[in-house]
């Protein structure tokens, strides 16, 4: 597939998010279903997820940089980024409002934290997917 460095970068970010944060959410879901209700046990799992995201990003971008001619974003890349951002940022907004509502309703902090994390994950994944759609189908 013929891709610019920026498009490759989007694929790498999507892969790192799905592998890292997606993996974390699966493990966290299992922990929550097993009755873990405090935040500290989730911290090491989250730390592993962050390391995984960073590692996949670094490795992927090194490969992308080696296999790409130009590394600079042009006006099309910026337009696609802006469009995707505006089409996905509402998800994080809904999550933040939901978290505030949950705090008002005295929902456990562990659920509020994960609601925020899920909305961040959803927002980023939708953004990357929209970018890929715009790159492939035109903008």
């Amino acid at each position: 597939m013929d891709m610019s460095f920026e498009e490759k970068s989007v694929w790498i970010q999507l892969a790192s998010l799905v592998v890292g944060l997606g993996g974390y959410l699966v493990v966290a879901g299992l922990m929550l279903s097993n009755g873990v209700s405090a935040l500290p046990p989730f911290v090491p799992v989250f730390a592993v997820a962050v390391v995984l995201i960073v590692a996949v990003n670094i490795a992927g971008h090194v490969v992308a940089a080696v296999t790409s001619r130009s590394h600079e974003a042009d006006e099309r890349d910026r337009l696609i980024g802006c469009r995707a951002e505006s089409g996905s940022s509402w998800i994080l907004g809904v999550g933040v409002i939901g978290a505030i509502m949950a705090l008002i309703l005295s929902v456990s902090g562990v659920w509020v934290a994960h609601l925020l994390l899920i909305s961040l994950f959803g927002s980023e994944v939708v953004k990357e997917v929209l970018q890929i759609v715009y790159y492939r189908r035109g903008v």
Partner: peptide
């Protein structure tokens, strides 16, 4: 711009 952008313009997928 990138070659991919020229390709997109040429193919009518992007208005510069």
């Amino acid at each position: 711009v990138t070659r991919q952008t020229v390709n997109a313009i040429e193919g009518g997928k992007y208005s510069p």
